[in-house]
């Protein structure tokens, strides 16, 4: 197998453009047969939420996402991989996270994107606080046992 691709990782307050990130991974490439993108967005939970405040651990967030992305690049034959995770106050409808995985064939890109999202959920140092539609602060979003359990299927 060829050398693993070098993942692109960004942790930022600003929004991202999925089409632009696809272009960055694929421009001029004739060997890429599949591009999978996953975009995670803030939802209003049936009108209950005004926003989510995403807190992160600067430095570790980038390092941890990079470790997860490099693991994905070792496990699957990827042509390119980008991960962008936002922080700060995000309103319903806004983007939170982007994964773009490119490969010669679809299976590697699909599985790598799925793997990335499972690990970002439980292993990347971000925490979400709810801001309520009626004003005021809600609770911290609790980690779900099923998210932790989702990691099991990737353990060799």
């Amino acid at each position: 197998m060829a050398e693993p691709c070098q993942p692109r990782v960004r942790v930022q307050a600003e929004d991202f453009d999925a089409a632009l990130e696809i272009e960055r991974l694929t421009a001029g490439r004739r060997d890429i047969g599949a591009v999978v993108t996953f975009t995670g967005r803030c939802r209003d939970e049936g009108g209950r939420l005004a926003a989510l405040e995403l807190e992160h651990y600067p430095g570790m967030a980038e390092a941890q996402i990079r470790r997860i992305a490099e693991e994905a690049a070792r496990r699957w034959a990827l042509s390119g991989l980008s991960v962008i995770h936002r922080f700060g106050r995000l309103a319903p409808g806004e983007n939170i996270v982007l994964v773009v995985a490119a490969s010669a064939h679809r299976r590697a890109a699909l599985e790598a994107a799925d793997f990335l999202m499972d690990y970002l959920k439980s292993c990347a140092p971000f925490w979400k606080k709810e801001h309520l539609a009626g004003g005021g602060e809600g609770d911290w979003v609790a980690a779900k046992a099923e998210d932790e359990a989702a990691l099991e299927r990737w353990r060799k």
């Binding site: 651990y57 570790m60 970002l120 959920k121 439980s122 140092p125 971000f126 925490w127 979400k128 979003v141």
Partner: peptide
């Protein structure tokens, strides 16, 4: 040393 709750990324 950092102490924090279970993470909720993604």
């Amino acid at each position: 040393v950092a102490l924090f709750p279970p993470m909720t990324g993604g």
